[in-house]
């Protein structure tokens, strides 16, 4: 049994080597057209590098914003805040002690409510952190009247709805206001969405510019090597044979440019990520890219040569139609 397996393995290996051998035998370096000597090859390489670099930055921005929106949404999911304001609905100011007492009383009631998983009072220190970006660190809590805040976490399979809970809350405290964050969160997410769309539009413009540059470069090369192309046609080279040479040449340039551009782009993104984490401010969120987003960026060295390949091939085929 094992000898048969060994024999089959050897046969398979021989066949594989033969296929590889034939494949390499039929491969050769260089082109029938002097494409490598085209004067704008370096320029095209730099252009593709820059385009890919910009595309990496743009896509990273878009993906980071997407990931950030997700974090905001999931971070506030099942979370609401209850406020005991310093001023009643009819305009009377409450004392700090009243606010504090009312907050503590409500918190005890809330902890026993079937809708609530946990209820925590935000201490002065926590509120100070929240207000820090606007009014600085020198806040004297005794001098500034602050509302009472309770952070609520809602049970995942709560038996009542948020609207039912609002009614219960009004019965528990006549002062309490419920803030479910949806209003400002949706505004924030909408703003992030606009920025994200802008990044995507920039990415599309970058891809469009790259395609236009490839078309122009292919046409320029075809004009330069018109006589050689005519000769290939006269010897019997079909359009596909000529188009393949352009496709290979342009794809190699695009691949080199895409590798370089992606590398430079990722280095820049990582530097930005490190800087964003060093800035300790709740107003400026840290730039983070998920692993899947990172993989998407890593696909650029394949994506750009692929669109270059298709563009170059189709451009040559269309241009050759006018030649006999």
């Amino acid at each position: 049994m094992s000898s048969i397996k060994r024999k089959n393995f050897k046969l398979g290996l021989d066949l594989f080597i033969k296929i590889i051998d034939i494949r390499f035998e039929n491969m050769r370096s260089g082109y029938d057209l002097p494409l490598e000597k085209s004067p704008d090859t370096k320029f095209l390489l730099i252009l593709v590098t820059l385009m890919v670099f910009l595309a990496v930055l743009s896509l990273s921005g878009s993906l980071a914003l997407h990931d950030m929106s997700e974090r905001w949404s999931s971070g506030l999911e099942n979370k609401v805040t209850i406020e005991i304001p310093i001023e009643t609905k009819d305009g009377h100011l409450l004392s700090q002690d009243t606010v504090k007492r009312e907050t503590e009383r409500l918190q005890i009631k809330l902890e026993n409510h079937p809708f609530v998983k946990s209820a925590e009072i935000l201490e002065d220190k926590d509120m100070g952190k929240l207000l820090d970006p606007w009014i600085g660190q020198d806040l004297l809590f005794s001098e500034v009247p602050l509302p009472g805040l309770i952070a609520l976490e809602i049970k995942e399979n709560a038996p009542t709805t948020l609207d039912d809970f609002r009614i219960d809350l009004a019965e528990m405290s006549s002062y309490a206001n419920l803030e479910d964050h949806q209003e400002w969160l949706s505004e924030l997410i909408r703003f992030a969405g606009i920025l994200q769309s802008l990044s995507l539009i920039i990415s599309v413009i970058i891809i469009g510019t790259t395609i236009t540059a490839i078309i122009a470069a292919v046409r320029a090369r075809m004009a330069i090597h018109k006589k050689e192309i005519e000769l290939l046609h006269l010897i019997g080279a079909p359009d596909i044979y000529i188009a393949k040479q352009f496709r290979r040449h342009m794809s190699i340039i695009a691949f080199k440019g895409a590798i370089l551009g992606t590398f430079l782009g990722l280095v820049s993104v990582f530097i930005l990520m490190i800087f964003s984490q060093l800035i300790d401010s709740p107003l400026i969120p840290s730039l983070e890219i998920s692993f899947i987003s990172f993989l998407m960026i890593l696909a650029f060295p394949l994506f750009f040569p692929a669109i270059t390949s298709v563009t170059a091939y189709q451009t040559v085929l269309r241009s050759l139609k006018d030649m006999l």
């Binding site: 010897i235 019997g236 079909p238 359009d239």
Partner: peptide, 12 residues
């Protein structure tokens, strides 16, 4: 056709 031209030229 265009393709016929190329295959004919290969015989010349």
């Amino acid at each position: 056709t265009r393709e016929d031209f190329f295959s004919l030229r290969q015989k010349i």
